[in-house]
Computed example of a mutant assay.
Amino acid sequence: MAFWSCSHSRAAAPAEPEKFAPVAAAAPAQGRRIRTTGTVEALRSFTISVPRISGQQQGNLTLTKLALNGTKVQPGDIIAEFDHTSQIKSARDAEAKFDDLSHQVEQKAAEHQSNAAKRAADLAQAEADLGKARLEIRKGPVLSELEHLKADEVLKNAELHVASLKISIPAHERAEAAELQVLKLQAERQKLTLMRLQGDADKLVLRATIPGMIALQNVWRNNSMGHAQEGDQLWPGNPLLRIFDPSSMLLQLAVSETDGAILRPGAKAVVHLDAYPSLTFSAHFDSASPVASSALGSPLKTFTARFILEQNDPHLLPDLSAAADVDPGN
């Protein structure tokens, strides 16, 4: 029986695989609309962070002044200030030390000039004495032997004195030049320290860089997230606020990968703000990410699309959630 079962299985013909007709991908139908969600953002914005102070190892900065949320500003307007008492005190001390070193350089230069003039006078006097000694030695035939020996000794001493001065004067000049250069380098280094401290004090006064409106950012304060307030201790580098131009706003949408074909030039969108359900705005397609992406651990992929809002309304503010009905157009 076992032999018959095996031979029967080998004799059976293999079944042919089933054939399936290819199915073409369905194109989006004309007039088909999709609804998706996103957030309102400014087309032009600039983020202001808590400044970083050079040379600061650790610690935070105390906020002493902050513009109100929604304030309209122009370039150069002060929008925030931090406590800069320490920087101003250090800058004043550095300035006093720099002035002292500058006076030392001037005093040392004047002293070296006086010493150079004195050495030049000593050399001139030594050369005059040498010339006088040479004249005396020429009187040898009329001088006694003792006087001749004295004149010869005076001549030798004069020659040695002149030679010694000619060797020592350049050495003194090099030493004084090096001493003066050391003081100049110390003054220059102190000047750089002063400039750094003054720059640190200027960094603690934040000014607007573009015209627009202020939107305060959420920061970590008092064991919770919220807008910064005067007197808060803030860590350098943390975002403090954002300046945006309210005259040009856009809508950032997340469109599913299956609806990506609707994102094309000419696409329109009807926008509804969640915070103001009665308001409706229109927008047109501007751009989209070339590749769909997904969040970590999620199998759903979406395209990031940007639609430019066509109206200018004070209700359009950054980070507002919105729903949009997207129409592919013609």
Rank of each mutant, 00 (worst) to 15 (best):
L130S: 00
L183K: 15
V271H: 06
F3V: 06
V270N: 12
Q252L: 11
A25C: 06
G237D: 02
D83V: 03
T209K: 14
A305K: 02
Q229D: 05
K301P: 01
F303M: 04
P211F: 09
G131L: 04
M1S: 09
A25P: 15
G329R: 01
L197N: 07
R52T: 02
P28F: 02
S294I: 06
Q125H: 06
D232F: 04
W235V: 07
L296T: 05
G38E: 03
K108W: 09
A91Q: 06
R221S: 08
N238F: 14
K139S: 08
K268H: 13
E310L: 11
L101Q: 13
G260W: 11
D200Q: 13
N238M: 15
A175E: 15
E147G: 03
L204H: 07
E136W: 05
M225I: 10
D245Q: 09
C6K: 14
G212D: 00
R119I: 07
D200W: 11
Q56H: 12
K89C: 00
A117D: 01
S54N: 08
L206C: 03
G131I: 01
P328D: 13
G70R: 05
T36E: 02
L296D: 09
L250H: 07
V271F: 04
F285M: 09
F281S: 12
D93N: 05
S54R: 08
E230Y: 02
A13V: 14
T302N: 10
Q190C: 06
G226W: 04
P239G: 10
G199F: 05
A15Y: 01
T71H: 15
A177C: 09
S164W: 05
A27R: 13
R174L: 13
R207I: 11
A109G: 05
T37V: 12
Y276C: 07
H272I: 04
N60W: 09
K191M: 09
T47L: 08
N157S: 08
L320T: 01
A187E: 12
Q190L: 10
T209P: 01
A295H: 03
P28S: 06
D319L: 07
V142M: 08
V73N: 11
T258V: 10
K191Y: 10
A254G: 05
S90I: 07
L300K: 13
K19M: 11
I167N: 04
K19L: 15
K166R: 15
V326G: 09
D200S: 14
F285E: 07
L253V: 05
Q87E: 14
N115W: 04
A215P: 02
V73H: 01
E230W: 00
I137C: 09
D129N: 13
E111Y: 06
A24L: 15
E111F: 05
P299I: 01
Q198Y: 06
K156W: 01
K139E: 09
S282E: 14
I79K: 08
M249H: 01
